[in-house]
Nucleic acid binder design. Structure first.
Ligand SMILES: [Mn+2]
Length: 206
DNA sequence: AAAGTTAAGGGTC
DNA sequence: GGACCCTTAACTT
């Protein structure tokens, strides 16, 4: 296992959070600023961003952000009663998935991209606990652009955490984070610029 | 079939 | 205006 652990992660400029029922690892500058700038511009321009509609409490509503689901052809993804088929890999993202897989010593074969135009775009409390992701999925979250707050709260314990996800940073959610915790990206009126988030996941082939 | 809901709207401070 | 709670009421698994 060559992934950063609590004992060696300082050498790799990684912050480790050992929480009840969850492990988080945060690399503030996984990508250099110029590399992150370039990737953000490229993705913003070249991807087919969609405003999906989902059903919630009986209402059909447009999600307050734009998204793309991408990866290996077998990676079907379902949430809030809507089925998503993956777009084929963008070459740069296939490469990035492979680099992150190697760095974290964990396979990633699909990615959900979310584009938040400004602080009005957001995502409410939820967990990435879809059955196709398995019991204790590892989720690697790369942030580009506008820094945004990221909140986590335990489902049962009075335990909450706020992180600031910065341009070029990588956050790994591991352990039983998705089973015992929820997370959100709250509205932030003062955030004026675009953020793009990439959450790399692994879905086993059938 | 009971439980859970990645949403918005309306209240308060 | 904005941050934070609470409610919503119907569909899904
Ligand atoms: Mn999520």
């Amino acid at each position: 296992m060559t992934r950063a652990t609590p004992s060696d992660n300082r050498n790799q400029n990684c912050r480790h959070f050992s929480l009840p029922d969850a492990e988080l690892f945060y690399w503030p500058a996984y990508l250099t600023a110029p590399a992150a700038d370039l990737l953000q511009q490229q993705l913003s321009r070249e991807l087919h961003w969609q405003t999906a509609s989902i059903r919630i409490y009986g209402r059909e509503v447009a999600i307050p952000r734009r998204q793309v689901w991408m990866g290996e052809p077998h990676c079907r993804y379902r949430y809030s009663g809507t089925d998503f088929l993956p777009e084929p890999w963008h070459p740069r993202l296939r490469e990035l998935a492979s680099q992150i897989s190697q760095a974290l010593q964990h396979p990633f074969n699909c990615v959900l991209l979310n584009q938040y135009a400004d602080g009005q775009d957001h995502m409410g409390w939820h967990a990435d606990d879809e059955p196709e992701l398995g019991l204790a999925p590892q989720i690697a979250s790369l942030s580009l652009g506008q820094s945004r707050r990221f909140d986590l709260k335990h489902r049962q314990l009075e335990c909450q955490l706020q992180l600031l996800l910065q341009h070029g940073s990588l956050l790994l959610m591991a352990g039983t984070c998705q089973q015992y915790w929820q997370h959100r990206l709250p509205k932030q009126a003062q955030a004026k610029a675009e953020r793009i988030n990439l959450t790399f996941r692994y879905i086993a082939p059938k």
